[in-house]
């Protein structure tokens, strides 16, 4: 019968090597899993930071986002909770804002491109900083569909006097006969500059005062109108009795105003009236209020 003996040194060494290899594989899986989890958590954290900053900048108005702005910060700018949970990986965010516009066939509509990048550097099992990572999210802040402009003023003195027409009002009077003058001493009451064509709704209110020592006739009127730039009268001309109504208002619509600079003029004049009326009646502006609602024009 064969002589049975114990394991030889070689056999023991082979067993040890195999066991070592298996242990190394298991350890590598454990350590690898640990670092993969850390990487996933870092990515999730970077995504959270990036998303918060993107939301913050998307909440801002179009005009408050400057062109070519670059804003930088780190996670401590969001909450101390991020600082308290820092390991040896640090997160820095950058917000980049750029002007852009659509290439539409009709309107080139501007928008702001908001890009948020969060950078961090992964640390390897030896504690060395290795791969630099970036999470990036982008979105746009569109040009507003609606703009609202308003201006108002109170005038405490008699500095804004209505010009008088050259003749009593009759239907079909010419501009020269009206003798229009601006309600203010400036050429216009309002300027605007939109990047796209707009449809406008213009509303204005005027409060007037007359010289009570010269009583106006019952049909003696003040007329007002609105003009865009130096063009034709938009909407209607208001004709309001001075004596009974010292508050004038008008609402008008102007369609498809081209992009670019424009000015709104509110003009007025006092009817010269019947020869029987007191020619010395003076009318002054006491307060004005002009509001413009501008909606993006869409070709029908």
């Amino acid at each position: 019968m064969k002589n049975s003996k114990g394991l030889s040194l070689i056999e023991i060494l082979v067993v040890l090597v195999i066991t070592g290899l298996i242990a190394a594989c298991v350890s590598a899986a454990v350590i690898g899993g640990y670092y993969m989890l850390k990487q996933a958590e870092h990515k999730s954290r970077a995504m959270s930071i990036t998303h918060v900053k993107l939301q913050e900048y998307l909440a801002k108005s179009f005009d408050s986002l400057g062109p070519d702005d670059i804003i930088k910060g780190n996670e401590s700018n969001i909450s101390n909770a991020f600082v308290e949970t820092q390991d040896n990986t640090y997160f820095n965010w950058t917000v980049i804002i750029k002007n852009d516009k659509t290439s539409g066939a009709v309107n080139e509509v501007p928008y702001k491109n908001v890009t948020v990048q969060t950078n961090y550097t992964e640390v390897n099992p030896q504690g060395k900083q290795v791969n630099s990572r970036t999470i990036q999210l982008s979105n746009i802040v569109p040009y507003p569909l609606i703009h609202i402009l308003s201006t108002r003023g109170d005038i405490d003195d008699d500095s804004h006097k209505a010009p008088r027409t050259t003749r009593p009002y009759v239907s079909g009077m010419t501009d020269a006969q009206y003798n229009w003058g601006g309600i203010l001493q400036t050429p216009e009451v309002m300027k605007f500059d939109y990047a796209v064509p707009k449809d406008l709704i213009i509303m204005y209110n005027l409060a007037i005062f007359y010289d009570t020592s010269h009583s106006p006739g019952p049909e003696q009127t003040i007329m007002t109108r609105c003009r865009l730039d130096n063009g034709k009268t938009e909407g209607i001309i208001t004709r309001t009795p001075i004596r009974s109504q010292r508050f004038i208002n008008n609402i008008l619509q102007v369609e498809n105003v081209p992009a670019g600079q424009h000015k709104i003029k509110i003009e007025w004049c006092q009817e010269a009236g019947n020869p029987d009326w007191d020619a010395n009646v003076a009318v002054w502006l006491r307060a004005y209020d002009v509001t413009v609602v501008a909606v993006e024009h869409k070709d029908k």
């Binding site: 640990y34 989890l37 850390k38 958590e41 999730s44 954290r45 959270s48 930071i49 998303h51 918060v52 900053k53 993107l54 939301q55 913050e56 998307l58 909440a59 969001i78 909450s79 909770a81 991020f82 308290e84 949970t85 820092q86 390991d87």
Partner: peptide
């Protein structure tokens, strides 16, 4: 691993 987990959200 750090004991504390944190996430944030921006709300408008």
């Amino acid at each position: 691993l750090p004991e504390k987990l944190v996430k944030a959200e921006g709300i408008r």
